[in-house]
Design a protein around this nucleic acid. Structure first.
Lengths: 246, 246
DNA sequence: CCTCATTTGTGCGTATGTATT
DNA sequence: AAATACATACGCACAAATGAG
């Protein structure tokens, strides 16, 4: 399949060096350079993309800034970091289980929490009354020290009032639910879209401008079908993929 | 929630006008301007994003080029098209059914077809021998004249030799399968990623450079679990979303 | 019909970023 | 490293169209 030179767009609002940086980042994530552990030499990339070597150097400099590659005079451009995590989506979707042994260290950080009235949209999803109190958690998940998702999660406040504390202590929604007396829950629907990273994404997920985020909006219910959680999670697109197994 | 001015990144390889165009396109798709049917005036957008009015005008010009908005002197910038299609993903995922009544006209175009030996990766997915013959179809799907997906699809050639002709006549995989004696099939797995549009995407999906595509890699089997089809489909991210219902 | 506020269209000068040679 | 060409972004000013009063 895609052999040969994929071209690149000129003068369309995205600088060539950025387009090329994005391509190389994706190629690294896809394991295309695994045999050598190096990116092809600059002149080869320049020819492949049909640009000047200066332009390739700008792209590699940006990737070096991100810590993805490291250029060494006389040796080439070495790959320092290379990661794409897989998230299975099913009735039993669990974040920490989902990562499984794809990462050694897993972390769930609580950035912010608040109690607030439900908006009309949220109330409809959680099947509660508009304006009814909900707990909102802003969380950041990491795997091997790298941020892999930024989530905003809502829970009905009357049923899960202790969620903030429970999550803070465990760093896991599943464990927090169990603490609050909910032994099991099910993923009933997931909506997936993609968009450009916004400012908060750039900061929290440590992305570079122009990066793409996958957005998953998920509704979980208890075993009786009563909604217990609605979450909007944002993932760096070049680090993750979703799989749906039927 | 997100009230107030979301900022925009300077000097990072992505032109301001492009970032702003992407934001406005998303806002339109999210129905944020539905009440007036118009985009806010240029001076207001300029203030919101903290840029010069010329820059906003560049963004709007790009959106006008895409046919999304139309500016009229003295009146404002009117929203011409506003669409985000929803694709449910399940065991019974079918493209044409999936769109359902979200579009009036549905079309399936055959861009190219070929018979070729299976690569190692493809053979593993279809559970056939590497190098065994497969039929490859390149198809473009449209809804209401707008391209909504570009797919590369492989079938085992020994079982579905007549696929090219069958698809050409019906414009539907489901119908083509039925013609060839396969009454039913199941979606067993779907992998979803997102990336920047490549040149072929720009041409076939009529996108503008820098656009995002959602990529779905799907495996279908017959009711006995024997793989019958593997497909890689690319969708314009600002026109579609996926939903997984469990 | 005219006036006015609003909103888009246009021109010009300048500074900086991008890409090539 | 330097010279060149073009794209991007800003600031200011004014013209032209629209719709409301």
């Amino acid at each position: 399949m895609d052999t040969g030179q994929m071209n690149v767009q000129r003068q369309n609002g995205v600088a060539l060096w950025r387009q090329i940086a994005d391509r190389i980042r994706t190629s690294i994530a896809n394991g295309e350079y695994d045999e050598t552990g190096k990116v092809p030499p600059e002149f080869a990339l320049a020819e492949q993309f049909g640009v000047n070597r200066h332009t390739v150097r700008s792209a590699l400099a940006a990737l070096a800034q991100e810590g993805i590659v490291r250029s060494v005079q006389g040796r080439g451009t070495l790959i320092e970091r290379k990661d794409r995590l897989n998230f299975p989506i099913s009735q039993r979707t669990r974040f920490n289980q989902g990562i499984g042994d794809q990462a050694r260290e897993k972390e769930g950080l609580l950035l912010h929490s608040a109690e607030e009235p439900a908006t009309a949209d949220l109330a409809a999803r959680l099947k509660i009354k508009p304006g009814a109190p909900v707990i909102r958690l802003e969380t950041l998940r990491k795997a091997d020290r790298r941020p892999v998702s930024r989530s905003t999660t809502w829970f009905p406040a009357d049923r899960f009032g202790g969620m903030t504390e429970a999550y803070r202590q465990s760093g896991s929604i599943t464990v927090a639910f169990r603490t609050l007396g909910l032994a099991d829950y099910l993923r009933v629907s997931t909506e997936i879209t993609a968009t450009h990273a916004d400012n908060a994404d750039l900061a929290d997920l440590e992305l570079s401008p122009g990066a793409i985020v996958l957005v998953a909006k998920a509704l979980n219910t208890d075993t009786d079908g009563v909604p217990v959680q609605y979450a909007v999670s944002r993932f760096p697109a070049d680090m993750v993929q979703f799989t749906i197994e039927n």
